[in-house]
Design a protein around this nucleic acid. Structure first.
Length: 279
DNA sequence: CGAATCTCCTGGAGGC
DNA sequence: TGCCTCCAGGAGATTC
């Protein structure tokens, strides 16, 4: 379950590939969330990787060559991981996709549950349906309290579901939704449009803080993250509520509660997070 | 429109 | 040991 910090950590880990030229592409199991484009082994070789960007949880790899240009879009789904190998040692069971570069380095996608994606975009990425209507990046200045409150107008759904909606803000997954709401002392069921501006300020600040902490943890474990036995940064984090059902709240000591919200497990402290406001 | 539900997939945990 | 069921979850697709 890579969240935004893991995707960003992955991006940084792959930066050494920028400037390198593709040697070959191997597709072992094309059926991810969508089929991996079958033309990639013909299209990508001889192209140069010009840059690596991230939008939401998508990795955007900019390629160009004499035959054209495009963006290789990668998504890790919930079990995906990208490794940067010094050479193409034998692939294991869930290693579905390789991009080998001149010089021997290999970008390898492993994704047991195959919720991830490998797509090829040509033309302006903003026109692509997956990217066109995304909300702001949570760590950028465009995500602020007034924006959030405005984005939640007319939304009566639970705030936890609202901040996990990529049209409101991208990159807040199930873990950090629960965590940032606890840290904001907002009950996850609170109707989204009932948050005060002050609550929006607090929530925005805590989302940024939580993600930045995870990013720092991920960054510090970069080597491990790319190793075979490494744990992603988020496993190193200490959570206030996530996956701590019945354990004592780290603030008040009462047992952490869990509930289903939008088909997702949700963790909170019923004492520290005030019951939802009736509207 | 908004909101809720369904869906993809496999590994791991728990029950018997 | 083996088999079964349940659960985890990102986010687009579908339905109401």
């Amino acid at each position: 379950m890579p969240e935004l910090p893991e995707v960003e950590t992955t991006r940084r880990g792959l930066l050494p590939l920028v400037g390198h030229v593709v040697q070959s592409v191997t597709i072992r199991h094309p059926r991810l969330r969508w089929p991996i484009p079958s033309h990639l082994p013909q299209t990508l070789p001889a192209m140069t990787l010009n840059g690596l960007r991230r939008r939401a949880k998508y990795l955007l790899c900019d390629f160009s060559g004499e035959t054209g240009a495009g963006i290789l879009l990668l998504h890790l789904g919930m079990s995906g991981r990208i490794q940067l190998l010094d050479d193409a040692y034998p692939a294991e069971k869930h290693d579905h996709f390789d991009v080998a570069f001149v010089g021997g380095q290999v970008l390898r996608l492993r994704d047991p549950r195959r919720f991830g994606a490998v797509l090829w975009l040509e033309g302006a990425e903003d026109d692509h349906p997956l990217l066109a209507s995304l909300g702001p990046e949570p760590l950028e200045d465009g995500f602020h309290a007034k924006y959030l409150q405005q984005a939640l107008v007319n939304k009566t759904l639970a705030i936890k579901n609202a901040i996990m909606d990529g049209h409101v803000v991208v990159g807040v997954g199930n873990i950090y939704a629960s965590e940032s709401l606890f840290r904001s002392r907002i009950h996850p069921e609170t109707p989204a449009n009932s948050l005060s501006l002050k609550q929006c300020e607090k929530l925005v600040a805590e989302i940024k803080l939580t993600l930045n902490e995870a990013l720092n943890a991920g960054g510090s474990s970069l080597r491990d993250f790319f190793g075979t036995n490494g744990l992603p940064g988020y496993f190193q984090q200490n959570y206030f509520v996530y996956a701590r059902t019945d354990e004592p709240c780290l603030v008040c000591g009462r047992p952490i509660k869990t509930m289903r919200l939008g088909q997702r497990s949700t963790f909170f402290c019923s004492h520290c997070q005030k019951a939802r406001v009736k509207s």
